[in-house]
Amino acid sequence: MNGIRAGKSGGAAADVIVLGGGVIGLTTALVLAGRGHRVRVWSGKPAAATTSAVAGALWWPYRIEPRDRVGDWSLKSLRWYEELAGRPRETGVRLVDGVHRGERLAALGAWAGQLKGVVEAGEGLRCRLPLIDMPVHLDWLEGQVRSAGGAVERRTVASFDEAAAEASAVVNCTGLGARNLVPDPGMRPVRGQLVLVENPGIQEWFTEADPASSETTYFFPQPGRLVLGGTALADDWSTVPDPRTAGEIVARCARVRPEIAAARVIGHRVGLRPARDAGVRIEAEALPGGGRLVHNYGHGGAGVTVALGCAEAAARLVG
């Protein structure tokens, strides 16, 4: 599994504490446990209540910087998800066909040349990519961390010193929480709203996104639902679904697949993507008393896409 293997940990002791229980924190904890570390994850929320649980979540480098590193991180994660797709009920990962309307290979980075089976058609790029049922995947990640000897605990912190008092290394995977914890004023939310409907029989995913626009159009067939999106509203902290926005999302998706217009709405979701002005931050610094702090945050709209690649980069800095 790309170098991830089970390790052993004794009791509640730990040499690494990971702050944050979303996909970035849990994947990082799993990689660290696989490298022989005794790991504890501290998260103020259960995984099901994190931003990660709201994600669509199609593998694709979307709204994330820096470009010169994102490709490698994404491809490492892609290969892992391709393996996990062999056990979809357990891992939540499936390989699904779909279309990125308007995309062209020449406009993407060098990473696109490593994709398998991509066809450039008149409407855009047809691909078979990992589509992840995030509630299932997050539950699987938690289970894997525990099976590897780690612990997942409900705990919040007001400073890194609290974690450093109990472990020699601390990994900061707090997403938007880093805005106040670090503090990092370059962290800002990019609000995404989704509508969940009963699937009228759609088997392929679809996306059409203009990076310059706050409106996107996509639908992802997930088990038991069709996920419709979406929005990308910078600096909007509201987590309350807006009925007008929901209607506009359904209407945009129905222009692509008319049967969506009559699909019964079964839920609404809002997530705040943890964007950072300077892009993803993966770097280490010393803590008072000789401890080591490793940052791994600022993944914007592609935390799922780069989760394993970033986890491995952060783990190397832990040592």
Rank of each mutant, 00 (worst) to 15 (best):
H299C: 12
A212W: 01
R264T: 08
P274S: 09
L233N: 07
R252K: 11
G229H: 00
R179Y: 06
V227P: 00
Q222Y: 00
G267D: 06
A302I: 12
T245S: 13
A178I: 04
T231L: 10
I202P: 06
T239A: 11
E204M: 01
P241D: 08
V227T: 09
D242P: 11
G279L: 03
A286D: 09
V265W: 03
W205L: 06
L293C: 02
E204R: 12
P274R: 11
G247Y: 08
R281V: 12
I260M: 01
S213I: 05
V197R: 02
F220C: 02
M187N: 10
L308W: 14
T217R: 00
C310T: 15
L293W: 01
P221W: 03
A307H: 09
V265C: 06
R281D: 09
A234K: 11
V195T: 13
A234G: 07
S213N: 09
L181D: 10
A275Q: 09
V304C: 14
A286T: 10
A254E: 00
E248Y: 01
L196E: 06
I282C: 12
L194N: 03
A212K: 13
P241G: 13
A232L: 12
T207R: 03
E204W: 00
R257H: 10
L194H: 07
G201N: 07
V306T: 15
D277W: 00
E312D: 10
V256C: 06
P223E: 08
W205Q: 02
M187G: 10
G279R: 05
R255H: 13
T207D: 07
A234F: 06
V190Q: 07
D242Y: 11
R269Y: 12
G247S: 06
A284N: 04
L293Q: 07
G224I: 07
Y218R: 04
R255A: 15
A302D: 07
E285V: 13
E259S: 15
Y218H: 06
L233P: 03
E198N: 07
H295L: 10
V197C: 12
V265Q: 11
L308I: 15
P274G: 12
R264W: 00
G291M: 06
E215F: 01
P185N: 02
R257A: 15
E259W: 00
T231C: 01
V250F: 02
V250L: 06
D242G: 12
A275I: 01
